[in-house]
Design a protein around this nucleic acid. Structure first.
Lengths: 147, 147
DNA sequence: TATGACGCTGACGTAAGGGGAAACGTAAAG
DNA sequence: CTTTACGTTTCCCCTTACGTCAGCGTCATA
């Protein structure tokens, strides 16, 4: 069973670039030893990289991930760390649910604009022969008048 | 009816910062005239800013928005422009739908992690209570278990 | 020996502004 | 007339999470 890893091994395993791994080290989230210049990663580094990648996948910033990793290192009986992480995760869920709503709203807006455009295109192509002056605005949205 | 606007008027109306508006100008998307140093925005600027903000809301990059604005300026009979924009919008819809799926997957992962943590916390707190009942330390302070 | 695969260290670039400094003009208030 | 308070300007560094060179060393292989 392997206990040390090269940068490209880990890069392949976790589907990140060596550049990203070096960046994580520079940010203090990994601390590989060195053989001359070359980085030698331990299983601990590997686990941490796994956590980093997972954290990124669910949308945490590196700063947040680093906090959690640090907390995990302190490990004061684990409960405090677990509770802090739990809260972060819960917060993230709320943020993502909000994002989902935003996306749905954007989708609705886009679909409406497309419908509007389709109509305009149809009109334009019908009228093309006779008339040429059309007043096309763009997003199908008028500038807001208040607020 | 107003035909000119100050930077902060537009900022208020469209809920963006003056800084952002200056940035859009710097990027060539707005071209207010000047009275001395001070920017004077026309209704055209106002419409364009509205389009920028709308475009941003549905997730277009400034580069994409600028392209569409430029197209609109050229306005070669409009139909071409409409079709190009339509395609951009359709592409954006696809991208957003993909994003939605990603978010749903992240949410699932987060919820699972939370469930796992809750279980761990429960376990840990049960253990803690058991230790406390057997070993009264006083003042609610637990001995340190390690670094 | 030459070539290619890996590795390294800087340094600069990205998107979309945020934040703050320092300076200017204008208007009201003392 | 001066102070105070805004509103605005330009200028420049900061941010995130790396990508992308440039320029170099080290190794194994053809």
């Amino acid at each position: 069973m392997k206990t040390t890893f090269s940068i490209s091994e880990l890069a392949r395993e976790f589907a990140v670039t060596p550049r990203a791994i070096r960046f994580y080290e520079q940010e203090g989230m990994l601390s590989p030893s060195r053989q001359g210049q070359t980085r030698i990663f331990s299983t601990r580094d590997r686990v941490r990289l796994g956590l980093i990648v997972q954290g990124k996948r669910v949308g945490f910033s590196l700063a947040e991930i680093r906090e959690m990793l640090d907390l995990y290192d302190i490990g004061d009986g684990q409960v405090t760390q677990l509770k802090v992480s739990r809260k972060k995760f819960a917060d993230r869920i709320v943020a993502l649910e909000r994002q989902r709503i935003d996306i749905d709203e954007s989708l609705a807006g886009l679909r409406q604009s497309i419908a509007w455009m389709d109509q305009k295109i149809k009109q334009a192509e019908e009228t093309e022969a006779r008339e040429k002056s059309m007043n096309v605005v763009g997003f199908g949205v008028m500038p807001r008048t208040g607020t």
